[in-house]
């Protein structure tokens, strides 16, 4: 598991090194570009595009965690119980909404620009995380919560020593789904007025320029796969007991 972690770290560092090789990309992509087309996106370097993309995703993800986990916690406490049905129902219906459609639903409300994109990414990313949190926190084995109570744990100790660790696998699975969805949906977000790796893809698709499309598609695919593997690795490390 340690070795897997080191490999992942190396893969991340390697990818970032790769993203920094602007002239290398230009050279490589010029093989697929047709003669009179630019082989590489010129307004931003690839490095900048990657950072824009990651910023967008990580900021929305941060919001998802800050709002989503406390929300799941709130509705599974005794004082939040009345709202449990509402939240789980909304989350279940919301998951049927296609993420890209949601992205564009927020466009008329917040107008073009990063705000609409971040809010849409955040709201859609919220769904899997809240769902995972609800699932984990509401399926604590009854014998264990009885034992915790019988041991003399107070509500706070039960939360930290029993419920949170027991819910961790579902929470992490939810976060992973959210992250992957956000990374993928953020690729379409340039249509709503943001930067990121979707910019060259969309530009390339509309001008029939394969090189530009690949300049965006390859890095974003790499980032998505690495992010997925990283969270999976985290799940293994943190949940040794399952």
């Amino acid at each position: 598991m340690r070795r897997q972690g080191l490999l992942l770290l190396a893969a991340w560092l390697g990818s970032f090194w790769l993203f920094a090789q602007q002239s290398g990309w230009k050279h490589a992509l010029s093989y697929v570009a047709s003669k009179n087309q630019t082989p590489i996106f010129e307004r931003n370097t690839l490095w900048e595009l990657v950072w824009q993309h990651l910023n967008l995703c990580l900021f929305s993800m941060l919001l998802v965690m800050i709002i989503g986990l406390p929300l799941a916690l709130f509705v599974t406490r005794s004082y939040g119980k009345p709202f449990l049905g509402l939240v789980s129902n909304t989350v279940n219906i919301g998951q049927i909404f296609p993420p890209t459609a949601v992205l564009f639903l927020f466009l008329p409300i917040f107008g073009f620009g990063p705000t609409a994109a971040i809010i849409a990414l955040f709201i859609y990313g919220l769904l899997p995380t809240v769902r995972g949190g609800l699932l984990g926190l509401s399926t604590i084995p009854e014998d264990q919560s009885n034992a915790a109570l019988g041991c003399g744990m107070n509500a706070w100790q039960i939360l930290w020593r029993l419920e949170f660790p027991q819910a961790l696998p579902s929470i992490l699975a939810g976060l992973r789904t959210s992250l992957i969805l956000i990374i993928a949906t953020a690729t379409v977000a340039p249509l709503v007025g943001t930067g990121g790796l979707g910019v060259p893809i969309i530009a390339g698709l509309s001008t029939n320029n394969v090189a530009l499309v690949l300049e965006g598609a390859l890095p974003v695919a790499l980032i998505a796969v690495l992010a997925d593997m990283t969270v999976r690795w985290l799940e293994q490390v943190l949940v040794r007991w399952a």
Binding site: P141, N146, A147, G152, A242
Partner: peptide, 18 residues
């Protein structure tokens, strides 16, 4: 604090699986 001073073995064992 009452429960802290009383040992309790529950019917279904209830070991903390994590």
């Amino acid at each position: 604090s009452l429960r802290l001073g009383i040992g309790y073995v529950i019917q279904s064992i209830g070991l903390f699986s994590h």
